[in-house]
Simulated assay, not measured.
Amino acid sequence: MDESPLRLLPWNSPEGRPCYLSTDHPDSRLSSLADEVEAELLSCGEAVLSGAEAVLADAAAGEGAVRFALTWTTESLRDVLRVAHCREGRTSGKL
């Protein structure tokens, strides 16, 4: 008997551990929620990138603005990499 494939979800448990979904149904309610969260993380990443580019293009931007932009860019990069790892596991069949 084959086991259901595990899907890495784009969030962690309250203890900070990765969460996985075991399902044979990619259209399940939880799978759909994970897809929505992934899409939102990518959309936020695009908005943060646009804001960071604007700060970098502004010669008058001070250290505070640059640090703020870099902080959010770092957070967004972490989220986008998480989405990439989630999707890589689904396309390769590995986690």
Rank of each mutant, 00 (worst) to 15 (best):
M1Y: 05
M1L: 11
M1H: 06
D2Y: 09
S4F: 11
P5H: 09
L6M: 14
L6F: 12
L9P: 12
W11F: 15
W11E: 04
N12H: 07
S13V: 06
P14Q: 07
P14L: 06
P14K: 03
E15H: 01
R17I: 04
Y20G: 02
L21P: 10
L21C: 13
S22C: 15
T23R: 03
T23Q: 10
T23D: 12
D24K: 01
H25T: 14
H25L: 13
D27C: 06
S28E: 10
R29A: 13
L30T: 02
L30R: 01
L30P: 01
S32G: 11
L33P: 02
A34F: 03
D35V: 00
D35E: 07
E36R: 02
E36Q: 08
E38Q: 09
E38C: 14
E38H: 00
A39L: 08
E40W: 02
E40K: 00
L42S: 03
L42I: 04
S43P: 00
S43I: 00
A47G: 00
V48W: 00
L49F: 13
L49D: 15
S50H: 06
G51I: 00
A52K: 08
A54G: 10
A54R: 12
V55K: 07
A57Y: 11
A57S: 15
D58E: 05
D58Q: 00
D58I: 00
A60L: 06
A60N: 05
A61Q: 04
A61R: 07
G62A: 13
G62M: 08
V66Y: 10
R67V: 12
R67G: 08
R67Y: 14
A69K: 04
A69I: 04
L70Y: 11
W72T: 01
T73V: 09
T73C: 12
T73H: 12
T74R: 13
E75A: 09
E75D: 14
E75Q: 12
E75G: 01
L77T: 10
L77C: 13
L77S: 09
R78F: 05
R78S: 13
V80G: 07
V80Y: 07
L81D: 15
R82D: 04
R82H: 10
V83G: 09
V83T: 07
V83L: 09
A84F: 06
H85W: 14
E88I: 02
G89L: 06
R90Q: 11
R90P: 05
T91L: 08
T91K: 05
S92N: 11
G93K: 02
G93Y: 03
G93F: 05
K94R: 13
K94H: 14
K94S: 13
K94C: 10
